[in-house]
Nucleic acid binder design. Structure first.
Lengths: 124, 124
DNA sequence: CCGTATCCTTAACGATACTG
DNA sequence: CAGTATCGTTAAGGATACGG
């Protein structure tokens, strides 16, 4: 079966393969890990510090998922002590671009959103 | 306290207010509901059909959250039978733009991602 | 038609302890 | 250093029934 034979992906369709993929990318930790790798290659412990609040378990799990999806590359440098570098693949870089735009827009919109929440909660 | 006094929002900080907001926007249903409203105003039942697989409960809850965040506007038309229209606010429109870019990019990347997954699963 | 309330099941998550 | 294993807790979600 060639790619051309596949129906076009549609996130609105219940069983479309894009749904779980989208979750991996936009989920609680996926988006932050991808964004953390946008500028540069990083080690496990660096990511752990940068993505504040993530547990070792979730970081490990998130990185594995993103690697499986072909967004993140994992490179083991055989040294003592062990040293592992994580970086974005070409696909990862393409996808992180609109993601960064979204994160940045959300950040600058936070004051406006907080104001909306307060106003909303006040009137009820 | 004026906006200028607030520290800049940073999604990487554990307790930053942007974290839950980001979840509302990029979560399992939030992103799809926002995207469904990108082109036009829609009714509850229309959204329910369009966002395939969402339950009434989750659609209701998602719309409430997005309304509270100031991204979605809810308009009740007092008629019988009742009629409710959902639309994006100005802020909603701004945020949905990079979101649509991301969704669309994920959709076209699905074949590449599936291939990566198969290759990854094969070699272990 | 547009939801909310209730109940229940499952999946996500965090903390901790431990290994190559 | 870079994880994995296990356990217990919490939050998310689905199904159904009912109400405005």
């Amino acid at each position: 079966m060639r790619t051309a034979d596949l129906p076009e992906a549609n996130v609105f369709a219940r069983d479309c393969a894009s749904r779980p993929v989208l979750q991996n990318i936009t989920g609680r930790w996926g988006a932050l890990v991808l964004a953390a790798l946008a500028d540069d290659t990083h080690r496990f412990s660096e990511l752990r510090r940068h993505v504040d609040g993530i547990s070792e378990r979730m970081l490990s799990q998130t990185l594995q998922t993103l690697e499986r999806d072909g967004l993140v590359h994992r490179e083991v440098l055989t040294s003592i002590p062990p040293h592992v570098e994580y970086s974005l693949t070409g696909l990862g870089h393409r996808i992180v671009t609109p993601l960064l735009a979204l994160l940045s827009l959300v950040e600058v919109s936070v004051p406006e959103i907080i104001a909306a929440q307060i106003e909303h909660d006040r009137s009820r």
